[in-house]
Simulated assay, not measured.
Amino acid sequence: AAPPKPEGQWAESAQRYYRMEGVYMGALENRNGFVPIRQPGSKWYLSEEDLPSGSPPIGTRYLAGWGYLLSRDLVHVLARTSAQWHLGAVQSAGEEQSGRSGEDGAEFRNSPTRNHTGPPYPQAPAWYRALPWEDVLVGTLLQQHGAMLQSHRGFSPAWRPCPEYTIVHHLDVDAPALMEALAAQEASGLWNIKWVQCTSGWHAAGSYEQWKRWRESLAGVEPI
């Protein structure tokens, strides 16, 4: 079912001045799109066997998962698509347990179970099972449905500074040390009028490589 439309005078005014549909906004960290990390020591490691080079969704552009904005209609797109695929997997698994399944077992399948009277479920592509990250999945699914991503400067990655127009900042490993101080600066209104310090690292503001080296020099931090 389609998401309900806002009602009332406020909703009419908001719809006149703001986009209420098709909103996918956040930080585009990887401008060349998704590239699997092949270093085994990385927590984001993905082997060639898991996702071969050149396979989709490699190259797909997506917004970073630590913070992005979705309009309700796109949330429904994601929920509907994933529900179809997951329901297909559950039904296939049920067939296997009852002795009615073929070799596919719990794999995603095109055909529904014998007890299902609705339309066939679409088969989930191979990359859906290979990707462990919600942000790449979200970007891929939305762009397959024609959604356009919008990179907004107010969404600030961990290696960038925090100016007064910041909407969301990714603290990453700095969260335990800086969360309380940043919350106080936001509550006082200071963050609304000036830049604030939002990293404890020695890296230059805006340098991903320096930030990464600093991050991985910390004890007990898993490499990325």
Rank of each mutant, 00 (worst) to 15 (best):
4 P>S: 09
5 K>E: 14
8 G>W: 02
9 Q>V: 14
11 A>M: 01
11 A>K: 04
13 S>A: 13
14 A>W: 07
15 Q>F: 00
16 R>M: 01
18 Y>E: 10
22 G>P: 12
22 G>A: 01
23 V>P: 00
24 Y>S: 11
26 G>D: 01
28 L>A: 00
28 L>W: 02
30 N>K: 07
31 R>N: 00
31 R>P: 01
32 N>E: 05
33 G>I: 00
34 F>Y: 15
35 V>F: 03
37 I>C: 10
38 R>G: 12
40 P>R: 08
43 K>D: 11
44 W>A: 12
45 Y>D: 03
49 E>K: 12
52 P>Q: 12
52 P>R: 09
53 S>V: 11
55 S>G: 02
59 G>E: 12
61 R>V: 05
62 Y>I: 07
63 L>C: 06
65 G>L: 08
65 G>P: 10
66 W>G: 02
68 Y>V: 04
68 Y>L: 03
71 S>K: 08
72 R>V: 03
73 D>K: 05
76 H>A: 08
76 H>S: 05
78 L>V: 05
81 T>L: 09
82 S>Y: 06
84 Q>S: 10
84 Q>E: 15
86 H>G: 07
86 H>K: 09
89 A>N: 09
89 A>M: 15
89 A>L: 06
89 A>H: 05
90 V>N: 04
94 G>V: 01
95 E>R: 14
96 E>S: 14
101 S>C: 13
102 G>V: 11
104 D>S: 13
105 G>A: 08
112 P>E: 04
116 H>C: 03
118 G>F: 13
119 P>A: 15
121 Y>G: 03
121 Y>P: 00
122 P>Q: 06
123 Q>Y: 07
123 Q>V: 08
125 P>A: 00
128 Y>C: 02
129 R>Q: 02
130 A>R: 08
132 P>G: 01
133 W>V: 00
133 W>F: 15
135 D>N: 04
138 V>D: 04
138 V>S: 07
140 T>M: 07
141 L>P: 00
142 L>S: 12
145 H>Q: 10
146 G>I: 05
149 L>I: 07
153 R>Q: 01
154 G>R: 01
155 F>D: 00
158 A>T: 06
160 R>W: 13
161 P>I: 06
164 E>Y: 10
165 Y>W: 15
167 I>H: 02
168 V>Q: 03
169 H>P: 11
170 H>P: 04
174 D>E: 07
175 A>W: 07
175 A>N: 10
176 P>M: 14
176 P>F: 11
176 P>Y: 12
176 P>R: 10
177 A>T: 14
178 L>G: 12
180 E>Q: 15
183 A>Y: 09
184 A>H: 06
185 Q>C: 06
186 E>C: 13
187 A>M: 11
189 G>S: 09
191 W>I: 05
194 K>N: 05
196 V>Q: 14
197 Q>W: 09
199 T>G: 00
199 T>E: 02
203 H>Y: 15
203 H>K: 03
204 A>P: 01
204 A>M: 10
212 K>N: 12
213 R>K: 13
214 W>I: 02
214 W>Q: 10
216 E>N: 15
216 E>D: 15
217 S>W: 06
217 S>N: 05
219 A>I: 04
220 G>M: 03
221 V>I: 14
223 P>N: 07
224 I>G: 11
